[in-house]
Design a protein around this nucleic acid. Structure first.
Length: 197
DNA sequence: ACACGGATACTA
DNA sequence: AGTATCCGTGTC
């Protein structure tokens, strides 16, 4: 099918979902003229994680079997919002990383039009918001990282890594104790704060 | 606080 | 067919 964009190292998505989600903090995500720095992610494990789609969707299990590491997994949530995930595969455990928030860096005017909002902190501060801002929908489902979706791996600087916080995932009812949500500390573009502990 | 909305996967 | 569930957002 399609090939990876040259800005991406495929082995990045061949570690555990947890490590992948942590390392994506600080990376630059770009799509069709818009871009932002990833400031919030969540990891989901295909095995033993009841919050992962694989636990209740045969189609998710099939998706993992039929797609390579790094493929986009895009689905409609609550009938309203498209959510962007990347397939993690080939490491200790397979799974997904949900992209939950960006700090906008390029194409802000286009984002403002799509979002009907002007403030920078309201453009990509949520998993549904960022897909709306970037114009990502189901047509991007199952794509490999090429054709305009550039994921520049600004490979977590020590500073970013030192400021990445692990906390509880949000919006789920099962497996709520895993600290598989990762945020860039102090970012003004998070969906919600990191919470206590 | 609550409405909005549709794909997926059940039960028949 | 009909029903339950779901990784959210904006406005009430």
């Amino acid at each position: 099918m399609k090939k990876f964009g040259e800005s991406l190292n495929p082995t990045f998505f061949q570690q555990s979902p947890e490590d992948c989600a942590r390392d994506l903090i600080g990376c630059r995500l770009a799509w069709k003229g818009c871009a932002g720095v990833i400031v919030e992610t969540e990891a989901y494990a295909a095995e033993g994680d009841e919050a992962c789609h694989t636990h209740f969707r045969p189609s998710a299990r099939r998706f993992i079997a039929e797609h390579p590491a790094g493929s986009t997994y895009v689905y409609l949530n609550y009938g309203v919002h498209w959510l962007l995930n990347f397939l993690v595969k080939g490491g200790a455990t397979d799974g997904f990383v949900l992209i939950r928030a960006l700090a906008p860096s390029e194409g802000l005017e286009q984002m403002r039009v799509r979002r009907h909002r002007t403030r920078e902190t309201e453009l990509c501060s949520g998993p549904g918001k960022l897909t709306q801002a970037l114009g990502i929908d189901h047509s991007m489902h199952g794509m490999e990282l090429a054709h305009g979706l550039g994921l520049s791996l600004s490979r977590s600087s020590r500073r970013v890594r030192a400021n990445t916080i692990a906390c509880r995932r949000v919006g789920i009812s099962r497996e709520i104790d895993r600290k598989w949500r990762f945020v860039l500390a102090g970012s003004s573009c998070l969906s919600v704060g990191p919470g206590a502990e």
